[in-house]
């Protein structure tokens, strides 16, 4: 009777995979926009924290998750505006500003959280987005559990990725974004406003990063805690490169990361596994590294002017 438990085991892992991938995916798809336009934002971690905190505090005070999400997105857009001002208008080094954003995100959210919700025994949890069981489909064995019993923000990624692909590759807007990342001069001569396109792309990026952060507090755990993003911003950054600067690439890469993360958590729950748990913890990172090296035959270059301001 080994078969049944192993199918359940697989089912559990796959269901967890998508959930674990979701916050990373939002941030990564956003970063694809930003990087396609030639702006690298290593401050994703900080922006995700800002998104998480604003979404949480508004949702907590107002009682509305959607309002929280909205304000989280606005906070992300505002962060993007500031980021764009520094990197595009002032033409500061993008890595510098990104590093600053990581610190600012950690500092401001931690500080405000502490000031607003002083140490207290009052529970600060939210009623999070609940799983939506798709009628009929959710009762299919195995696939029902894996695919059709998630909350709305997880399903949202299914909309996000095709939409992002469509916008980037099938619209004039997307063409302009890619053009200002690859050949800004040429884009400029044909009348594309390079600065404006980059601003918009950066802000799309940070808005989606904020959604990824908000997901953690609105739809996963029910509470903001300091440092709740726990490195996912950096993983998202890796996922963008790994996914070859494409939304679908980001989708599969973050699922790959998610599956190994879910797997390591499951293996830790199994008796009689005598692998030190630290090796299991390292598994998702190691796997990403191995796959990156192994499947990188067809090299895809980063957007040509990534990191380079435009005069």
């Amino acid at each position: 009777m080994e078969l049944i438990p192993s199918i359940l085991f697989l089912q559990g892992i796959l269901a967890a995979t998508w959930r674990m991938a979701t916050p990373i995916l939002y941030a990564a798809v956003g970063e694809v926009f930003s990087e396609k336009a030639g702006v690298i934002n290593i401050g994703l971690e900080g922006v995700m924290l800002i998104g998480a905190f604003s979404a949480y505090s508004v949702a907590f005070e107002s009682g509305s998750l959607w309002l929280g999400l909205l304000v989280g997105i606005l906070a992300g857009i505002l962060s993007g505006l500031i980021f764009a001002f520094f990197t595009i208008t002032i033409k500061a080094n993008q890595i510098v500003v990104g590093a600053a954003f990581n610190m600012i995100g950690m500092g401001i959210t931690g500080f405000l959280y502490r000031s607003m919700y002083a140490v207290s025994a009052v529970p600060l949890g939210l009623k999070t987005f609940q799983s939506v069981e798709i009628p009929f489909l959710s009762s299919i064995p195995f696939f029902g559990e894996v695919l059709f019993k998630h909350n709305i923000m997880v399903y949202g990624t299914l909309l996000l990725v095709p939409l992002a692909t469509f916008v980037l590759y099938k619209t004039a807007f997307g063409l302009s974004i890619r053009a200002v990342g690859e050949h800004p001069k040429a884009a400029d001569t044909v009348g594309v406003n390079v600065v404006r396109m980059r601003y918009v792309s950066v802000m799309i990026g940070t808005a989606l990063a904020a959604v990824g952060g908000a997901f953690l507090v609105l739809a996963y755990a029910d509470q903001f805690v300091e440092g709740v993003v726990s490195g996912r911003g950096f993983i998202a950054l890796a996922v963008v490169v790994f996914g070859r600067w494409k939304p679908w690439g980001a989708f599969w890469s973050s699922l790959l990361f998610g599956i190994f993360y879910a797997l390591q958590l499951r293996i830790q729950t199994m008796p009689d596994v005598n692998i030190p748990y630290q090796f299991l913890q390292a598994l998702p990172y190691l796997a990403t590294l191995v796959v990156l090296v192994g499947f990188n035959k067809r090299r895809v270059q980063a957007p040509k002017t990534l990191g380079v301001p435009y005069k």
Binding site: Y220, S230, A262, M270
Partner: peptide, 21 residues
């Protein structure tokens, strides 16, 4: 069984580990 997360902040992973159990 025991699971270690490797940090003190990742509520999402803690929840996911719980679901695994």
């Amino acid at each position: 069984q025991v699971t270690y997360l490797g940090n003190w902040t990742d509520t999402a992973s803690a929840k996911e580990a719980s679901i695994s159990y």
